[in-house]
Design a protein around this nucleic acid. Structure first.
Lengths: 339, 339
DNA sequence: CTGTTAGCGCCTTCAG
DNA sequence: CTGAAGGCGCTAACAG
């Protein structure tokens, strides 16, 4: 491994001079600078980020931690974050927590030990609290995306989830549906809780009773075992005429399960969901959804993060909370019921 | 920042003892271990991996560099790489080069200075050569995914691309198609070249002439300007009855363009492609494709990478080249033509 | 079983 | 303008 000492020896200067050339600090004669530069090129020198960070106690690296890298909502968000980071001259690395608190913890450790300057994070669940506290304790700025964590104040970018759930239910009611079911994420996730709240409120406003048997709480991420969904579908009596899915993954899982038992959407049952299915849904628009502005989640979140990083030392600003609108996109997965 | 010295002082032992507890090395009395452990918990100690890597000269960090984070092929691949890395106790970070050679270079620099133990990389194009040479020079093992780079020997995981292209064309021919067009990636990408070769061979075997006007070379990644596709579609005379798309992104772009001009698939024109559209295509299987084993690309590639890392110093093994099969999945985007 | 010494590669501080 | 000394947090090698 080539170090600044190797460069220094070759160039006949001290390591300190090399360091100054690299960081463009202090005053150096053009001749010395040129010589050092030449030797660095010859030896293919690459600065050691770890040694550097050890001394400086900081890097120029940002992290984005998402919970499901195969979910188009998060990958689109990632592109937004990337573009915003690039615009400000930061580098961005990604991590995938897979909705697992343990994996999230591992990433947080990696992030802490890599001395990232900041983190954009979609927390796995409420149990992410200790991880966020750890970031806070170590003075690493972060911005939460899509989900909040009770007990942790911070900047955050959210979707207008409750309103989205209401719009979905209203849409179903307006088409004559009266028995509406909800398959949702786990209640340890703030966005799932809001979806349930919005769902209940919309039912109440529509003069429909809330019936617990019509609600299933499953996991937001893709899974191979869908037996909980299967038995839930079988158990509901009378069967619902429409199902609201808490995210795109659940929507797909419900529809697949329905297909597997010979039921067609929307002929036999209507299905609506949250979040679009990615650019690929465009070729055959099928699922009626609440489309969230995924790219904006990442872009705005990254801007807020960078502002926090760069205002460091200045008077602490109050936490900011951005709520992005939820738009209903009507396609063809809902049937109009006879009066 | 809490260091092992703080722990040591609090616990009344030496820093070395703390280090041993953390790494579970050497022999330590249960009492000492318990005491140290307790202090670590109290002080919320987080080990500094940079300091650790500095002395160990290895980071246990691996990188995966993909070219399009919004493409389900790559995200599924990423999940495979992640699982394999985890199984061997490595951490994995992701980067997205966006098919850009410049962004790729930036990531390679980050990777080098972060002293990653190895890199899994889908190269942006043939012009990635200098970046790979840089990795090699610095002794960072890497495995190429999906694409090769002429002039650079290495382990590589490829799809059976040529065979895939042949199957696609054969399928079209068997359904009566005679005027078959190809929209492909840029010829600076090895997989695009192979697709074209397979395409031409299949035409020849089917006694069909190769006609240059039926081939368009566009970019593999999503773009907002589709005018090249539009004018190509207009220009072909006589119009083709079927189009082969070099990847899923191109397939979607072609279909969208067709829809925009009121043409239906497959009624007016048949379309087939490479790579599936992600888990979400399952709810409404439409596009006939060559499905590649994306997860396996990542999983096997990661295994090969880790083997390289851990065999270090042993006699150099010859490069390995894994070719994964290409499976034709027939759905409903192809029309059967009358005799 | 536990402690001491030295150094990983780099940068800050203080001298020239 | 340039250099020497010291230390960031940690662990290998050697001593007890």
């Amino acid at each position: 491994m080539v170090t600044i000492y190797d460069i220094a020896a070759q160039a006949g200067v001290s390591a300190m001079t090399v360091s100054r050339v690299i960081n463009n600090t202090g005053k150096i004669s053009d001749k010395t600078r040129a010589k050092v530069q030449r030797v660095m090129d010859e030896l293919n020198y690459v600065p050691n980020h770890m040694a550097r960070s050890l001394v400086l106690q900081q890097s120029k690296l940002l992290f984005l931690l998402i919970t499901d890298i195969t979910n188009p909502f998060y990958t689109t968000l990632a592109r937004g974050a990337e573009d915003a980071a690039k615009k400000s001259g930061y580098r961005l690395l990604f991590g995938n927590s897979d909705e697992s608190s343990q994996k999230e913890k591992d990433y947080i450790d990696t992030i802490l030990s890599t001395r990232a300057d900041g983190v954009l994070i979609a927390p796995a669940s409420d149990s992410s609290l200790p991880h966020l506290e750890s970031l806070r304790r170590h003075n690493v700025p972060f911005v939460l995306l899509d989900r909040e964590v009770p007990g942790m104040g911070s900047d955050v970018v959210l979707g207008d989830t409750k309103e989205g759930a209401r719009k979905l239910v209203d849409h179903l009611i307006s088409l004559g549906h009266r028995r509406i079911a909800l398959i949702n994420g786990l209640p340890t996730i703030s966005s799932a809780r809001l979806r349930l709240e919005g769902f209940r409120e919309a039912l109440k406003l529509g003069d429909l009773a809330y019936d617990e048997q019509y609600v299933l709480e499953s996991a937001f991420e893709p899974k191979s075992d869908l037996s909980d969904i299967e038995s839930w579908l079988d158990s509901m009596d009378p069967a619902p005429t429409a199902i609201v899915a808490g995210n795109n993954v659940l929507a797909v899982e419900v529809i697949r399960t329905l297909h597997a038992r010979g039921l067609r959407v929307p002929d036999d049952l209507s299905v609506v969901g949250f979040d679009d299915l990615g650019p690929y849904s465009e070729i055959d628009p099928f699922l009626t959804v609440i489309a969230q502005q995924a790219y904006q989640f990442g872009y705005l979140g990254m801007q807020m993060l960078i502002e926090r990083i760069e205002e460091r030392g200045a008077a602490a600003q109050p936490w900011r909370r951005v709520v992005l609108p939820a738009e209903l996109v009507v396609r063809r997965s809902v049937a109009k019921l006879p009066e």
